[in-house]
Design a protein around this nucleic acid. Structure first.
Length: 270
DNA sequence: CGCTGACCCTGACGGC
DNA sequence: TGCCGTCAGGGTCAGC
């Protein structure tokens, strides 16, 4: 489920329950995630206080004095707050049991997520080559324009490339391109600086709005009914193939780019 | 270095 | 009902 807004929503939802608490134990029912959960992860975390919960790209970082627990939700993962112990369901692979009885329960049917360890000061390979955060000032029009020069691939693939900018998943790539009026399959290197200004702004806007609306999902999330819920945000193109464009009424078209479904308006996006 | 395609896994859904 | 193919919001990696 998670795109960046949902990861951020998750972070905001669990941080108040996790920060300052000690980890009682890590209960790993299924270690076979994207990479195996390290066998000594529980031993490292036991008794450690969670000093902060940060996010980098779509990774959640649980910082302790002895190192950092690195969590990715993959495609289908969720991490929710369990107030009173209930029986784990089918794909509830890991519990982070906290002092005070709260459990952070990790569910991930497809097991594309991960639980890994980072030593203090370590330059972790999974984080090493990540591009700037899309909502930071490091991500700006000149930066994206510069990155695009010489690239022959589709612009949609460029903005979904984590080495260029992190956190732009398939849904929001589609949405941002529509709002910026840029065709997803256009060669990245052949788009003007002016249009990269529009695109950069659209990416920031669409993610900001989604995070704000993710905030409304927050209560459900923390309340522990387990419903990941999706953003109430109206998606203008994603999932609307064949339906009329909200701007010009032309039927939206679909194609595949980098093995991912792409929807756009032939008339509005150039 | 840039780009493409394979791959990791389960579940939902549509067609027959 | 059941079986089969297709698709799904993540990302890494090998190979050219």
């Amino acid at each position: 489920m998670p795109e960046l807004p949902e990861v951020e929503t998750t972070r905001l939802g669990i941080a108040p329950y996790a920060c300052g608490k000690r980890i009682r134990e890590l209960v790993v029912r299924e270690p076979r995630l994207r990479w195996p959960v390290p066998a000594d992860l529980g031993a490292r975390l036991r008794g450690q206080k969670i000093l902060s919960v940060e996010r980098r790209a779509k990774y959640l970082l649980f910082n302790t004095a002895v190192g950092t627990l690195l969590v990715h939700l993959g495609m289908s993962g969720s991490l929710r707050v369990i107030r009173k112990a209930t029986a784990p369901q089918k794909h509830d692979h890991i519990d982070i049991s906290l002092q005070g009885g709260i459990i952070l329960r990790y569910c991930d049917p497809r097991r594309f997520g991960c639980f890994l360890w980072r030593e203090p000061g370590e330059d972790h390979p999974l984080l090493r080559h990540l591009g700037p955060e899309p909502l930071s000032s490091d991500f700006h029009e000149d930066y994206l324009y510069g990155k695009s020069r010489g690239r022959k691939g589709a612009v949609k693939n460029l903005i979904m490339d984590g080495k260029v900018v992190v956190g732009v998943g398939n849904i929001y790539a589609n949405e941002a391109l529509f709002r910026a009026g840029v065709r997803p399959d256009r060669q990245a290197g052949r788009i003007s600086a002016v249009r990269y200004r529009l695109l950069t702004a659209a990416i920031k806007q669409v993610l900001t709005t989604a995070i704000e609306q993710g905030g409304t999902t927050l209560k459900d999330f923390v309340g522990g009914d387990g419903k990941p819920g999706y953003f109430a945000q109206a998606l203008l193109v994603y999932g609307r193939e064949g339906l009329p464009c909200t701007r010009c009424n032309a039927p939206l078209r679909q194609l595949r780019l980098g093995q991912r479904t792409t929807v756009y308006c032939v008339a509005c996006q150039r």
